[in-house]
Design a protein around this nucleic acid. Sequence first.
DNA 1: TCACTATATAACTAATATATTATATAAGTT
DNA 2: AACTTATATAATATATTAGTTATATAGTGA
Lengths: 113, 113
Amino acid sequence: MPNLNAAFSALSDPTRRAILARLATGEATVLELAAPFAITQPAISRHLKVLEGAGLIVRRIDGTRRPCRLAKGGIEAIYQWLATLRDALSRNYDRLDEVLAAMNREKERNGHE
Amino acid sequence: MPNLNAAFSALSDPTRRAILARLATGEATVLELAAPFAITQPAISRHLKVLEGAGLIVRRIDGTRRPCRLAKGGIEAIYQWLATLRDALSRNYDRLDEVLAAMNREKERNGHE
DNA sequence: TCACTATATAACTAATATATTATATAAGTT
DNA sequence: AACTTATATAATATATTAGTTATATAGTGA
């Protein structure tokens, strides 16, 4: 059971989503990740800490560098949660629409606006 | 372009995720959605407002009731964002692992710890 | 050793979010 | 009309978050 709270919360920030998108193309160091943004390095370090805490990235040590990459497990976990919701929705959607349509038809018959 | 910030932020709250899971089984009113939780009705109303603002649910009017259901489009949008990230990750994952393994082998050869 | 580079942490500020209670609104019932 | 039910809104307290600047830590290389 991964931490969905932390993971979705981490994803709610556009800077962090951009960092993840960048990491989808491969490993990168903190400064490399910081480069495209107009915010300071400490701010990026904090974003990375959030992403790591949420299980969305992992880091390794290479001298003074801390290269980051995506954590497959964490991303898969939230993907699965959403997939489950989406599937349940799809399963019920047509039926639900039918029910609602029927209710509307009934209202019409009863002379409601 | 849906509002990913709002959508992921909405999903970061466990009460709201539980509400969505409940709605995956079909429409429900505010009080029905509030029933399982130990928080007040106004708090639930706010959660629903957040979910609606994020495009994850829609509401209709039925007398004094405001039945809610999942908004297929919003859920599909974030699902797709995650699917894209996941796919990019999968595409790079094996190759990346190979690169990292190669780097480690090289380090070993160079006598690093 | 000294200076430089890469990153992290601390202290602080400003903005945002969640919950509560109290109250308003509007529809349904008698 | 009066009472009840379903929901929303306002006011408020508290907690969390994201950013800043300043500083610390730890490798790297001359």
